[in-house]
């Protein structure tokens, strides 16, 4: 079975990973999230290089397990997950398709190039994913998961999550 890997194309493995959902936000895949940095072959083994979103994110271990399982499901025995810290993950790597899916799911997608630089204390206007209004306010930069901030729409009055720029 292990020999199978050598006949595979890297492209095919990437397509398998596109079916692996983010465990916290299942509407987008780990590939769309931008955390799969590389797929390569090392002899008969498939090596997937993953970068963590936040250093303490509890989903990291689950993601590694899900990726391994997704590859094993195709009959590959040798899978190795490697962690790469640099360059550090940024929400700018989240694909366009994923941004649309996030919005439809009720999570405002991250603004590009707006990562917090420390002590800015300025808030970008984030569009409400429910009614589309830009008349919103930040309640807290920290939300239900490390990657989300907590916002409120001042027009439709609904609270919502913002996938914060990072």
């Amino acid at each position: 079975m292990a020999a199978l890997a050598t006949h595979l194309s890297i492209k095919e493995i990437w397509s398998w990973l596109e079916d692996v959902p983010d465990p916290e936000i299942p509407v987008i895949s780990v590939v769309e999230l931008g955390i799969v940095r590389d797929v390569s072959l090392d002899g008969a083994a498939i090596v997937v290089t993953v970068t963590p979103t936040y250093s303490g994110c509890p989903a990291t271990a689950v993601i590694a397990m899900d990726i391994e399982q997704a590859i094993r499901k195709h009959g590959i025995d040798e899978v190795r997950i490697e962690t790469q810290l640099s360059p550090a993950w940024t929400t700018d790597w989240i694909t366009e398709s994923a941004r649309e899916k996030l919005n439809a799911y009720g999570i405002a997608p991250p603004e590009k190039g707006a990562a917090c630089a420390g002590a800015l204390r300025t808030r970008t206007r984030i569009k409400c994913p429910l009614c589309g209004s830009a008349n919103t306010e930040c309640i807290s930069q920290f939300g239900s998961t490390p990657c989300k901030a907590h916002y409120r729409c001042k027009d439709c009055l609904e609270p919502f999550d913002y996938f914060k720029s990072f």
Binding site: Y54, S86, A115, C116, A119, L120, F142
Partner: peptide
């Protein structure tokens, strides 16, 4: 030291949000 640098590069983005909140 590249290994020190890469841990710092990862952590600094989180620390920015911490500082933003505690300052506020």
């Amino acid at each position: 030291d590249a290994r020190v640098a890469e841990i710092a590069e990862k952590s600094v983005k989180e620390a920015a949000y911490h500082l933003d909140r505690s300052t506020d």
